[in-house]
Design a protein around this nucleic acid. Structure first.
Lengths: 228, 228
DNA sequence: CCAAAAGTGTTGGTAGTACACCCATGA
DNA sequence: TCATGGGTGTACTACCAACACTTTTGG
């Protein structure tokens, strides 16, 4: 009666980025394996017998895109019986936030290409990766309210307006510049540097800001409660 | 080079209950299978080839405890390579909130017993189930702040003090009765009935209250934002 | 001098918190 | 009548939202 279990276990990674021109980005690869060859998909693959799930996700991400990330957060596990046309496959999805400029993409092994796509104009994705991306976006949008996602998505130093725009983009509605600035600076983990922005366009160049991770962690220890 | 994958996939269910005497409860089974026989553990087992993960969790829960639950929420997937001494095993954990009095426990197949345990006095658990429980509790404690967990954990009708106590227990700190009542009733999805509590002890018997699920969903649609 | 973005303060409303006394019941 | 838990109102505070003008730079 008990048939032996035949389920493949894989991992997929949703890596988010942000650029002030293109908004929220996702890292995709072009598949080189038989199934869905030529389709864009999330980086990912089978879990090996001796590695943990998170290790598998990091490894696949690195193999297929050249990107090395230390902290992946588990998102959700997708296990609908027919999500993979070849066989029963369950996939544990992870996600991460990065600053795209910090990495050089390099497709490898299973991928013939790797690139950033704006979430506004995603291509068709293989398998149920569309759904995985949707789940990840939902999570990111709720996370933005109570965790400083700017830490990860922006560069080391950034003009304050980048942060403003990031939040407006993620939240999907306009925020008051003045109140936003007050609120953020009041917490104390975003600091002004003395450097100035090199004016990309016209207008008065602003100071560059920086996240103070240590201060942030201190505040978290103290049980601070944000809400932006 | 690519060894075939040998990973077992299972599901586990953390079912929470609440009783005004014993506080937060968890449903456990006494194992009847070879490994860890006689130990208490979370209900769960191997996923079958043709069923979804959630179906598997419901089925195992029902088989081992007699409890049928419609909505399980996915909690986290545990996949450390050595979490099962027999072989590589990955487990997708689900959790649910129920009112314990609504079910009759009945151990079956793989379980020689099923019972509720107060989280204050849990026995030693098999595998890494201790960790799974800890993760679930953490989730429950954060959920309580912005979702009405009382819906699930209390009986259909309940005295207001039960809700108070539930929140105090989950939050772990005292709350002001008067403010709590005002806040909760202001939302409008908790209504007073005309029935009175049958005084278990002494003191003035209070009215019984009830959740209005429809009203709750309406408010959620409107994008209401709680925070207790 | 014009356009574009950066930077800055004040006010009014409201929601949350702190807090103490009376009421109904059973023993 | 006493003990126990149920039920209610007020006042103060602090935070948030709304809102507009000045400054610096490039062209």
């Amino acid at each position: 009666m008990n048939q032996t279990q035949k389920i493949k276990l894989s991992v997929d990674a949703v890596v988010f980025g942000y650029s002030s021109e293109k908004g929220i980005l996702i890292l995709l690869i072009k598949r080189n394996s038989r199934t869905f060859r030529g389709s864009w998909a999330l980086p990912g693959g089978l879990v090996r017998n001796e590695e943990s799930l998170e290790e598998a996700a990091k490894r696949e991400l690195n193999e297929e895109t050249g990107v090395s990330i230390n902290f992946l957060e588990q998102l959700y596990t997708f296990g609908t019986p027919d999500r993979d046309p070849r066989n029963r496959a369950v996939s544990v999805a992870y996600y991460a936030l990065v600053s795209p400029d910090a990495f050089t993409l390099q497709a490898d092994t299973d991928a013939s290409a790797a690139d950033w796509f704006s979430i506004e104009q995603l291509p068709e994705l293989a398998f149920d990766h569309q759904e995985i991306v949707a789940t990840a976006l939902k999570r990111l949008r709720s996370k933005v309210l109570y965790q400083p996602v700017g830490f990860e998505l922006l560069e080391e130093k950034f003009p304050f307006s980048d942060l403003e725009n990031l939040y407006q983009t993620l939240l999907g509605y306009p925020i008051d510049r003045r109140n936003f600035r007050k609120k953020v600076l009041k917490f104390g983990f975003v600091e002004a540097t003395t450097e100035r922005q090199k004016h990309a366009g016209s207008g008065r160049p602003g100071f560059l800001f920086r996240f103070n991770r240590q201060r942030y962690h201190e505040l978290v220890e103290q049980g601070i409660h944000f809400e932006l």
